[in-house]
Amino acid sequence: MASLSPPLLVIFDVDGTLLDSQRAIVAAMTTAYESHGLAPPSRRAIVGVVGLSVAEAVAELSREAPDHPREAIGEAFKESFRQGLAHAPDESGLYPGAADVLDALVAREDVLLGLATGNSRRGVERLVARFGLERHFVTTQSADDAPSKPHPAMVHQACVEAGVPAEQAVVVGDTSFDMAMARAAGARAIGVSWGYHAQDRLFAAGAERVLSSFAELIPALRLVDPADAA
């Protein structure tokens, strides 16, 4: 039987790509600033930095205010986000079609799956356990493991762990940071339209195409049909 060798490594972003967490993120960041007696950034500003690590996101949000206690705000955001999920676990869920596509891809012999996120490793582990995805991902990269996107380190490390060259990897994400990270690493970049950044930003950052639903992903990966590989 013919098959891709090495397999295709599909690296998913989390927030805005797999997980619909916008309301929880905005609420947590607002609380983080208010807990330090500071006026919170606008929803638009918060949404604009999703995809960066927490430290980088807070640095960008407080760029005009060097006196802001950035590290403390970041820690407050993490705690508020954890508390929000604990008290309202259904506030953030997988986008429609995400679970089905993950199940279909993990069943293939010519595909490996990974995660690359600005979340902490603890947050990644919590997500994977919450949705029963323990068997899906051969590599997970977090803000604890590498520099923030768009630095290519997460993709490079994921490829090493999966035993796949970068040219045999594709990043699926909703922000320009995801697309730029993929291109910098020498991987393909596929954007999704249901997340945080507009399509023009995704294309400008290097997306080869932008999906409007998860149903479009498997065809976009250009995989060999199992029936044709016999």
Score class of each variant (00 low, 15 high):
A158C: 02
A205G: 00
E208S: 12
Y95K: 04
T17N: 09
D228Q: 14
E134L: 12
L105E: 11
A189S: 10
V124Q: 03
I190P: 10
D200F: 05
S21W: 03
A227E: 13
V54T: 15
F137A: 03
L202C: 00
P165K: 09
E216K: 05
D20Q: 06
T31G: 13
D200S: 06
L18M: 02
A187F: 03
V47K: 09
V224E: 11
V58F: 11
D178W: 04
T175Y: 09
A227N: 09
P6V: 01
R183Q: 05
E75Q: 15
A72P: 05
G191K: 08
V170H: 02
E71H: 13
D13E: 05
E167N: 08
Q168Y: 06
L217G: 02
Y196K: 03
S42R: 01
V124T: 12
S148G: 10
K78D: 15
A59E: 10
F203G: 02
V155T: 12
A57Q: 03
R201E: 14
G173T: 05
S176A: 12
V155G: 02
D90C: 08
D67I: 10
A169Y: 13
L127N: 04
E56N: 15
A86T: 07
R222G: 09
G206W: 04
D144V: 00
V111W: 01
A55K: 15
L38N: 00
A204D: 15
D103P: 12
H197N: 08
A184V: 04
E216A: 12
D145H: 06
V171Q: 03
N119P: 02
R82I: 11
A207E: 08
L52Y: 15
G48P: 06
R122K: 13
R222D: 12
G74V: 00
D228E: 13
D145A: 09
L217Y: 02
R209C: 14
P41H: 00
A72C: 07
I218A: 11
F214N: 01
M1D: 12
G16Q: 07
S212E: 12
R130E: 14
H156P: 01
L115S: 03
S35N: 13
T31C: 14
Q157R: 15
Q141R: 09
V50S: 07
S148Q: 09
V172F: 06
S148D: 07
A32W: 05
D110E: 09
S92V: 00
V192Y: 05
P147E: 00
P226N: 00
A65Q: 14
V170T: 00
L4Q: 10
A107V: 13
L18N: 00
V49S: 07
A220P: 07
A86S: 12
S142D: 01
A116K: 08
D144C: 01
A162M: 05
H151K: 10
Q168V: 02
G48V: 06
G191R: 08
R209W: 03
N119E: 09
A215S: 14
G191N: 07
D67Y: 04
A39H: 07
S176F: 04
R44F: 09
